[in-house]
Amino acid sequence: MITPFRRNWSPKELFDALTPAMFAAEPSTVRARWDKLWPDLYTEYDARYLKQELVARNLIASDEAAAFFNAWAIDEERHTDGFIRIIELVANGSEKDLRARLDARTHDFGPIVEHLKDEFSLMVIIAFDEMCTCRAYAAEKPFYDALGNNTFHHWLREVIADEAVHSMNAVNVIRARYRDRIDQAATILHNLIRASHNLRYSGTFVLDYFGAVYSKELLADSRLATMRNIAKPLIV
Score class of each variant (00 low, 15 high):
59 L>C: 05
32 A>R: 13
127 A>L: 13
183 D>V: 06
216 K>S: 11
95 E>A: 15
156 L>S: 07
53 E>K: 02
56 A>V: 03
47 A>P: 01
100 A>Q: 13
163 E>V: 10
60 I>S: 09
112 I>Y: 07
235 I>G: 01
226 T>S: 02
219 L>Y: 13
96 K>W: 01
175 R>S: 12
172 N>W: 06
40 D>Y: 04
179 R>N: 12
9 W>M: 14
165 V>Q: 14
70 N>E: 14
187 T>S: 12
82 G>R: 01
9 W>T: 10
54 L>Y: 00
86 I>Y: 04
17 A>K: 04
56 A>P: 02
167 S>K: 03
64 E>N: 15
96 K>Q: 14
229 N>D: 12
80 T>P: 06
218 L>W: 09
142 P>H: 05
147 L>C: 00
205 F>D: 02
70 N>M: 11
95 E>T: 12
54 L>F: 10
223 R>D: 08
186 A>H: 00
201 Y>P: 07
145 D>L: 12
3 T>K: 09
193 I>S: 05
51 K>W: 14
18 L>N: 11
140 E>C: 10
186 A>F: 02
83 F>M: 09
163 E>Q: 07
144 Y>R: 06
187 T>N: 12
85 R>K: 15
236 V>T: 00
129 D>W: 00
144 Y>D: 03
147 L>A: 07
52 Q>T: 01
152 F>P: 01
78 R>T: 15
17 A>Q: 07
91 A>N: 03
131 M>D: 09
1 M>L: 15
180 D>R: 13
139 A>I: 00
7 R>T: 04
30 V>C: 08
25 A>K: 12
61 A>S: 13
198 N>I: 10
83 F>A: 03
18 L>D: 08
24 A>D: 10
193 I>M: 15
198 N>P: 00
32 A>P: 10
169 N>R: 04
23 F>S: 08
45 Y>L: 09
44 E>T: 00
189 L>R: 01
177 R>Y: 01
142 P>I: 07
9 W>C: 02
76 E>K: 05
204 T>F: 10
217 E>G: 06
165 V>P: 07
132 C>R: 05
109 F>T: 10
123 M>C: 05
201 Y>R: 14
173 V>S: 10
198 N>L: 08
174 I>M: 06
7 R>V: 12
74 I>K: 12
112 I>T: 05
206 V>D: 04
100 A>D: 15
200 R>I: 07
159 V>W: 09
65 A>Y: 08
24 A>H: 07
65 A>F: 09
184 Q>S: 11
223 R>Q: 11
69 F>K: 02
98 L>K: 03
63 D>W: 02
235 I>P: 02
228 R>M: 12
148 G>A: 14
230 I>A: 03
41 L>H: 14
165 V>K: 04
224 L>H: 08
131 M>G: 00
105 R>E: 07
121 S>P: 00
43 T>F: 06
210 F>C: 10
36 K>E: 04
55 V>G: 00
218 L>M: 09
152 F>M: 11
82 G>P: 02
117 K>Y: 00
148 G>L: 13
34 W>S: 10
15 F>H: 11
17 A>P: 01
140 E>N: 14
191 N>H: 05
25 A>I: 14
193 I>N: 07
120 F>I: 04
138 A>H: 11
5 F>P: 06
158 E>T: 09
95 E>Q: 12
175 R>T: 06
32 A>M: 13
115 H>Y: 13
197 H>W: 08
119 E>F: 00
32 A>Q: 15
104 A>W: 07
68 F>G: 01
139 A>E: 11
